[in-house]
Each structure stands twice: as structure tokens, then as C-alpha cells.
Amino acid sequence: MNFADVMEIIGTTIDAAGVAVIVVGALVGTIRFLRSLAARQDFTAGYRRYRQGLGRAILLGLEFLVAGDIIRTVAISPSYSSVGVLAVIVAVRTFLSFSLEVELEGRWPWQARRDRETTQGAGSA
């Protein structure tokens, strides 16, 4: 077994971990959401928690998938075309991650957090 084979196995294993994180996160989130429905809790709050949990699982899974792509591309075949393809993949996944983060947080990354604003506003009065 040579270096390229080992890196391929490591990259594939990290990819599998990313997929597993997304699948497990989706299953756990769905089970929690269904339990909240069965307990007749507030649907809107339960749905919001469900979406946030699913979004976080997708974000973490995307990080693993990007790591697997980087390992395979840089360690196995660092040609200009493979690095270019990796750059496009990373750009698309970064855009997805950014979009999901904005959706989950409900604000742009450069905006102050709402909990900071309320505590700062209360302390300065």
C-alpha cells in the first residue's frame, strides 16, 4: 500500500464521517421534532429548533466533506486542474455554509449578536 492509497482511504473515511454527521443529525433532529409534536409543544418553536439542528448538522458535515476533498486533492494529485476543481468545490460549499449560518443565526456575521445588544443596552442605561 503506497502513500496515495493511504490518503485515498483517509479522505474517503473523512467523507463518510461527514455523511454520517449529516444523516445522524437529520435523524436526531427529526426524532426530537416528532417528540415535541407528540407532546403538543409549540409547533413554531419546535420547527425552528428542528431547522437549526438540521442546519448545524449540515454545516458540520460540509466541513468534514471539504476536509476529505482537500486531503485527497492535495495529497494524491496536486495538479492545477485538480486544485482548480477543489477551489470550485470549496467555494460552493463555503457559500452553502455561509448561507446556512446566516439562516441559523438570523443575522449577518458582521452584525452584533442580539443577546450582546440587549445586555449592552441594559448595562448602559
Rank of each mutant, 00 (worst) to 15 (best):
M1Q: 04
F3S: 14
V6A: 06
V6I: 12
M7S: 14
E8Y: 13
I9M: 06
I10D: 00
G11F: 00
T12G: 08
T12C: 04
T13C: 10
T13M: 06
T13Q: 03
D15V: 04
D15H: 11
D15I: 02
D15S: 11
A16K: 02
A16P: 00
A17D: 01
G18S: 04
V19M: 10
A20G: 07
V21H: 05
I22L: 01
V23Y: 10
V24G: 03
V24Q: 03
A26G: 15
A26Q: 10
A26N: 14
V28M: 12
G29A: 00
G29E: 01
T30E: 14
T30S: 13
T30G: 15
R32C: 13
R35W: 07
R35K: 09
S36N: 14
L37T: 03
A38S: 15
R40H: 15
F43W: 11
F43V: 10
F43N: 04
R48I: 07
R49H: 11
R49K: 08
R49D: 15
Y50P: 07
Q52L: 09
G53I: 01
L54Y: 11
L54N: 08
R56G: 15
R56D: 14
A57W: 03
I58P: 09
I58C: 07
L59Q: 15
L60W: 08
L60I: 11
E63W: 15
E63C: 14
V66E: 00
V66H: 01
V66A: 02
A67E: 04
A67W: 04
A67Q: 03
G68H: 04
G68L: 05
D69E: 08
D69N: 07
I70R: 06
R72N: 05
T73A: 05
V74L: 11
A75D: 09
A75C: 07
S77W: 09
Y80P: 01
S82Q: 11
V83N: 02
V85T: 12
L86I: 01
A87L: 06
V88F: 14
V88G: 05
I89D: 07
I89Q: 11
I89S: 13
V90C: 03
V90G: 02
A91S: 08
A91I: 00
V92G: 05
V92I: 10
F95Y: 15
F98Y: 11
F98A: 12
S99K: 09
L100N: 05
L100R: 00
E101P: 05
E101L: 12
E101N: 12
E101G: 06
V102K: 15
E103S: 15
E103Y: 14
L104W: 02
E105F: 08
E105H: 04
G106T: 03
G106R: 01
G106K: 02
R107K: 12
R107G: 10
W108Y: 13
W108G: 03
P109G: 10
P109H: 10
W110A: 07
W110R: 02
W110Q: 05
Q111A: 13
Q111V: 05
Q111T: 09
A112C: 02
A112T: 13
R114N: 11
R114H: 13
D115K: 01
R116H: 07
E117D: 13
E117Q: 13
E117V: 14
T118K: 11
T118Y: 05
T118P: 12
T118F: 07
T119A: 06
T119F: 08
A122Q: 14
A122M: 09
A122Y: 09
G123F: 08
G123T: 06
S124F: 06
A125N: 08
